[in-house]
Design a protein around this nucleic acid. Structure first.
Length: 286
DNA sequence: ATCACCTATGGCCAAATAAA
DNA sequence: TTTATTTGGCCATAGGTGAT
């Protein structure tokens, strides 16, 4: 496919003297905007359902009980927000063929909001390194000296393979994530909790701090901050309570708040009937 | 809830490396 | 030789984590 083209008005190197270094907005004239750059990348992905499938192993390894945190935990703990941003875009654009993508580092830099070519390239390169260390991608020199990024399995275990069996657990990240600017609005904990919310694969789900922290490896504080962030930005909303029997409370009945993702951030294709209805009956809508 | 710790990020500059 | 990417050094500090 054709690479993202630099616009004709983009200054050639050596021709930047005329550019005023001050009073130039980040998304200065002559540069593709962050939003438009991402838009073009998503267009190229040609995913019909406009969602990015990511194996759940990215957030959580193995099945409960006895699960271990996935790569997401490492990215959050080391504050690799840009690496996460780039990874999600790479996941979006690397399709069925060779699972790789070749772009200019300046293109990637724009997707994470860096328009200064001096600092953009090192920032992108260092993000690739963080992802490589987790085994999520490999890089190689591509055509025109660009970097070819190849996606690997979401648990870092080996070369990427498309889904084989129907039972594989995926989360679906909708394009609405970028189209509604969540990639710039949300904090890193917010982004992490969003992916965790998607990994629940239910219309309504609990986000018990202690459990989320245990399963996904984030500090409880980070879980709380991320959940708050999502609620603040109207991505997540309370959805009543779930009641359960418990000897740990005096009444013998415990409860915990449920959440749901607000359209257009909700996940399509989840079971709407059957089990979901069954559980809904035990849930009192507030 | 508040505090302090501490590590790695990010910004900047520059040099090294690698491809064309 | 030119151009794009990678890496290294330096430093301030944001922010995730753990303790009080």
């Amino acid at each position: 496919m054709t690479p993202i083209q630099h616009t004709a008005t983009e200054p050639e190197s050596g021709n930047e003297i005329g550019q005023d270094e001050s009073a130039v907005t980040p998304e200065a004239e002559g540069y593709l905007s962050q939003a438009r750059t991402i838009e073009m990348i998503l267009e190229r992905s040609k995913r019909k359902n406009r969602t990015v499938p990511i194996r759940r192993a990215f957030v959580q390894l193995g099945e409960r009980p006895g699960t271990r945190p996935g790569a997401l935990k490492s990215l959050v703990a080391s504050r690799q927000e840009r690496a996460l941003d780039l990874y999600l875009l790479v996941a979006a654009i690397t399709g069925a063929n060779d699972h790789s993508v070749t772009e200019w580092s300046t293109t990637w830099a724009r997707t994470i909001g860096i328009f200064d070519e001096k600092t953009g390239a090192p920032a992108v390169s260092r993000s690739w390194k963080a992802l490589k260390d987790l085994g999520l991608i490999t890089t190689a020199r591509g055509s025109q000296r660009r970097t070819t990024v190849t996606k690997r399995m979401e648990d870092g275990s080996g070369p990427y393979a498309p889904p084989e069996n129907v039972g594989e657990k995926y989360l679906q990240l909708p394009y609405a994530y970028w189209e509604n600017d969540l990639h710039t609005k949300l904090s890193l904990p917010g982004k992490a909790m969003l992916l965790i919310a998607y990994a629940q694969r239910k219309n309504k789900f609990a986000l018990v701090q202690a459990k989320i922290s245990e399963w996904y490896g984030l500090a409880q504080k980070t879980v709380a901050a991320g959940t708050d962030d999502l609620v603040q930005h109207g991505v997540l909303e309370p959805a009543g309570f779930e009641y359960f029997d418990s000897l740990a409370v005096r009444s013998g009945r415990g409860s915990r708040p449920l959440y749901r993702l607000v359209p257009p951030f909700h996940q399509r294709g989840l079971p709407q009937k059957g089990l979901e209805d069954f559980f809904d009956r035990k849930v009192s809508e507030k």
